[in-house]
């Protein structure tokens, strides 16, 4: 990738907490204007990676740079916006006051009304944070994250606890920020969120990046297709066929994972003429993600 567009970087970074290795020589580059989704099981090192880029911790080894500088330097952090999942904000402050306070940290903040409009909190400005629902609180936190006109936005599980409509409108707001040229680092447990937004997905496991690429590339990494159907065939019978990787039986339905869907479908139809409700799907990011983390675990064990 192009060095000129790089705005944040972890290079050969190791971080240990006591005997636990959180990051084991991770390399990660963030480029201007892109959305990178960090995926990985809990404890894989996502939070530690973000903590280092935010200057909350120092690396034991390796380089951490943010806009060519040190993230612990306040001047570099004036170019970032942050939304942390774990933070509980003061319940007795109004959303307008929280925005005004956060805006005061930045040299040229966004107009508060405009900012509230983007995040969809215009009608909440006069309400106290503690009186809002979980989804409304997330939107308020998003507004605080973008108020400083950041060049890089860190969003930690931004849509946890949101209903589908609220999630869609936050995605629209995130896309708007990307449009303005802001880069985004997103951590999420919702794979469809990464699928909907990410230019690039980095799968982190055991303190390293085990796979990265576009969502499509990551999906292609896993050649599996998923066949679903209602059939009288036994799961055990189908599982013994060639090319069948896995069979799950749920309430008279079979879910079959296979790299050669066409051959398996042909055989299914021959074996059970009464077969109904046939569906064939490409593996989603969820399957790809499972496959990649499983592979890296196998490699680890073999090593």
């Amino acid at each position: 990738m192009n060095e000129d567009t790089r705005i944040a970087r972890l290079s050969g970074v190791r971080k240990r907490y006591g005997t636990i290795v959180a990051l084991d020589g991770i390399d990660l580059d963030i480029h201007r204007g892109e959305l990178v989704a960090l995926l990985g099981p809990n404890g894989a090192g996502k939070s530690t990676s973000i903590g280092l880029l935010l200057g909350l911790q120092r690396a034991d080894e390796g380089d951490v740079t943010l806009f060519g500088g040190d993230p612990q330097d306040i001047a570099t952090r004036r170019r970032i916006g942050v939304m942390l999942q774990a933070a509980t904000l003061p319940a007795t402050l109004k959303i307008g006051e929280l925005l005004r306070l956060t805006a005061s940290y930045y040299p040229a903040p966004r107009d508060l009304a405009e900012c509230a409009g983007i995040a969809g909190v215009t009608d909440l400005l006069g309400r106290r944070y503690g009186d809002l629902s979980g989804g409304q609180q997330r939107r308020a936190q998003f507004a605080m994250a973008i108020v400083g006109r950041p060049d890089l936005l860190f969003l930690d599980e931004p849509t946890v606890g949101m209903d589908i409509d609220a999630r869609q409108s936050l995605w629209a707001a995130i896309r708007r920020m990307l449009h303005e040229g802001c880069a985004v680092v997103l951590t999420t447990h919702y794979l469809e969120e990464a699928e909907a937004l990410a230019d690039r997905v980095c799968v982190i496991a055991k303190g390293r990046v085990v796979s990265q690429g576009s969502v499509d590339a990551l999906r292609a990494h896993v050649a599996l297709r998923r066949i679903r159907c209602v059939t009288t065939l036994e799961a055990g019978t189908v599982a013994a066929w060639p090319d069948v990787v896995k069979v799950d039986a749920q309430q008279g339905r079979l879910a079959i994972a296979t790299p050669r869907a066409e051959a398996v479908v042909r055989r299914l139809l021959e074996a059970d003429p009464a077969l109904a409700d046939l569906e064939v799907q490409r593996a989603g990011l969820a399957e790809a993600f499972q496959e990649i983390t499983r592979e890296s675990a196998i490699v680890e064990e073999a090593a």
Binding site: I74, A75, R77, R78, V82, Y106
Partner: peptide
């Protein structure tokens, strides 16, 4: 933690 991450 949030305050330390923000440019306060």
């Amino acid at each position: 933690t949030l305050k330390r991450a923000l440019p306060m």
